[in-house]
C-alpha cells in the first residue's frame, strides 16, 4: 500500500515574502499510521496542511498523498483528489450552519462519488454509514436532523470527525481539533478519533501544540525540527 503522505525536498515561500516559510527535507506517513505533529502556532503548520491538501503547491520538492504527486494534477483534479482521499477536522467552525447534522456528515460523499462507491463496495450506503459513525462517535440519533448550528462545540467536533471519516479516505488531517474542548472531553474525543481511524484504516495526521496528547500515537514528530526554513537554509 502506498504511503499516506510523502513530503520530500519541500520548499515553500509565500508570494512577496522575503524568506521561505517551509523547508522540509523528508516527512512521511505510512498507510494507516497515526502521527502526532507538534507545532506551535506560527511554525508553518497551516501552510503544511494546505500543501498536503493540495490547495497550495510547493516551489520545489514533492508532496504526494496516497501515492499521487499533487503537483502533477491540474487544479480541478487536485480539488477532486482532496475530496476523494483526505478528510479534515479543524479547531472550530467545521460545519455548514445551514445544513442539518446528517447533511453535514454526508457532504463528502456528495463531493466525491469515489467515497460513495467505496461504501457501496463495503456493502453499505452513505446514510447507513453516517448513522453508524454517528453512533460510534456518541452522537445521539435525535441530533442528526437538527441544524448544525444548534450543537455544542464538543458535538460539532465529533460531527466533523464523522464527516472526515465517511467513505474511508486514506488520510485524516486534524488541525488542533481538541483545543476548543475541556480536558476530559479532549481525551474522549481523541480516543474516538484514534479508534475510528484505525477501524477505517485511515492514516491520521494530528497537529497540535499540546504535547500532553502525544502519548496515544504511533509516532511523534516536531514541526520545528522538521522545518529547516529558518535554520540556515541556503538562499
Amino acid at each position: 500500500m502506498s504511503e499516506a503522505v510523502m513530503v520530500q525536498g519541500l520548499r515553500f515561500r509565500w508570494p512577496g515574502a522575503a524568506a521561505d516559510c517551509l523547508a522540509v527535507a523528508d516527512f512521511r506517513l505510512a498507510a494507516g499510521e497515526r502521527v502526532f505533529l507538534r507545532g506551535p502556532s506560527g511554525s508553518g503548520k497551516s501552510t503544511l496542511l494546505s500543501l498536503i491538501g493540495g490547495v497550495l503547491l510547493p516551489d520545489t520538492g514533492t508532496v504526494a498523498v496516497h501515492g499521487q504527486d499533487l503537483a502533477a494534477l491540474p487544479a480541478g483534479r487536485r480539488d477532486r483528489y482532496r475530496a476523494d482521499h483526505v478528510g479534515f477536522v479543524f479547531q472550530l467552525f467545521n460545519l455548514l450552519p445551514y445544513l442539518s447534522v446528517l447533511d453535514n456528515i454526508l457532504l463528502p460523499c456528495r463531493f466525491s462519488p469515489l467515497r460513495t462507491r467505496r461504501l457501496a463496495e463495503a456493502g453499505t450506503t452513505p446514510v447507513a454509514e453516517a448513522l453508524r459513525l454517528a453512533a460510534r462517535l456518541d452522537l445521539d440519533e435525535a441530533l442528526l436532523g437538527r441544524s448544525a448550528a444548534a450543537l455544542s462545540v464538543g458535538q460539532q467536533q465529533r460531527v466533523a470527525a464523522a464527516r472526515a471519516l465517511i467513505g474511508r479516505p486514506a488520510l485524516v488531517v486534524a488541525d488542533e481539533p481538541t483545543s476548543a474542548l475541556d480536558a476530559d472531553r479532549q481525551q474522549a474525543f481523541l480516543d474516538l478519533l484514534l479508534g475510528e481511524c484505525a477501524a477505517a484504516s485511515a492514516a491520521l495526521l494530528f497537529v497540535s501544540h499540546d504535547g500532553r496528547l502525544a502519548g496515544h500515537f504511533d509516532r511523534v514528530a516536531d514541526l520545528a525540527a522538521l522545518n529547516r526554513a529558518d535554520a540556515g537554509a541556503p538562499r
Binding site: 480539488d79 477532486r80 460545519l95 463531493f111
Partner: peptide, 13 residues
C-alpha cells in the same frame, strides 16, 4: 468566509 474554507477543505474548487 469560514463556510467557503470548509467547502474548499471538502474538495470544492
Amino acid at each position: 468566509r469560514r463556510e467557503l474554507a470548509i467547502l474548499r477543505a471538502l474538495g470544492a474548487g
